[in-house]
């Protein structure tokens, strides 16, 4: 593949240049509240007992683990990195890919760029690289806010834990972006791409949650990308799992490129 994808990647990243501040800042604000509150809750046995009394299904659904209040990492995992942050980052990746390839908003851009001597594979590759670079920027801002807040409030968040959470989150969102790229090969309607890819990620989340409660679902929860997402902020990076998520996303994106090259554009 020639370098024609590079200007597309740069353009895509520039088009979303405010996203690290908007999305990273938003997620960072949420993380800051969680981290700032944590020192006042640290090691509170009564709260641990209260949570212990919750139904297993509820604890599973919200990632409530034993020792929830024993470390800021556990608390962040349950409050943020179990559900909100991954779904937000996946939504960003899906929406950004979808907006660049499908729907009426993208039509003039597609018409101008795809009538240049560039393959659709190069275009979609450029879009994905640009989106993933912006996603890295979002997560960088989030990581900086988390570490600064921890330092200010004395929460004791380890840098390694933050890096592990961010890297795994990026891998999961990269998978979601790949899933969106696959669907852009199937349809030029952004509602189908957004709805299909995000719906899949939400369903995958529930499959992973219910897998812990039901043997039937548990038998297939390995199909869920959340199965490989895990709880990196407390457990560290699972390199093989992250590589698997990225590889699966790349395969989905490659299939999307092939399909995109075969369908009509801008009817």
């Amino acid at each position: 593949m020639s370098a024609a994808w590079q200007p597309i990647a740069v353009y895509t990243a520039r088009r979303r240049r405010l996203a690290p501040l908007a999305w990273g800042g938003g997620l960072g604000a949420l993380a800051a509240v969680v981290i700032a509150v944590f020192p006042s809750l640290r090691g509170n046995a009564q709260l641990d007992q209260l949570l212990d009394s919750y139904p297993e299904a509820l604890k599973e659904a919200f990632g409530i683990t034993e020792g929830w209040f024993s470390s800021v990492e556990s608390y962040l995992a349950g409050e943020m990195f179990n559900l909100i942050a991954p779904l937000a980052c996946c939504f960003f990746a899906i929406h950004a890919v979808s907006a660049a390839v499908g729907g009426t908003e993208s039509r003039p851009v597609l018409e101008a760029l795809l009538t240049a001597p560039i393959t659709r594979r190069q275009y979609l590759a450029g879009v994905l690289v640009g989106v993933l670079a912006v996603l890295a920027g979002i997560l960088f801002v989030l990581a900086v806010v988390m570490q600064l807040t921890s330092w200010v409030f004395g929460a004791g968040l380890a840098v390694g834990s933050t890096v592990a959470a961010i890297v795994t989150l990026w891998a999961l969102a990269a998978f979601a972006g790949g899933a969106a790229a696959f669907l852009t090969g199937v349809s030029d309607r952004s509602v189908i791409v957004n709805g299909g890819a995000f719906g899949f990620m939400v369903a995958a989340y529930f499959a992973e949650v219910l897998g812990g409660l039901s043997d039937t679902v548990g038998a297939v929860d390995w199909l869920s990308p959340f199965h490989y997402y895990g709880t990196a902020i407390t457990d560290g990076v699972d390199v093989a799992a992250c590589a698997g998520l990225i590889a699966a996303g790349a395969i989905a994106a490659a299939a999307g490129c092939t399909l995109f090259e075969r369908r009509d554009v801008t009817r």
């Binding site: 024609a4 200007p7 353009y11 101008a112 001597p117």
Partner: peptide, 16 residues
């Protein structure tokens, strides 16, 4: 959000 000059630069880069 893109200016005409930026668009021309982008297309020049894509076309080489």
């Amino acid at each position: 959000h893109v200016t005409g000059a930026e668009l021309l630069d982008l297309l020049a880069a894509v076309r080489g």
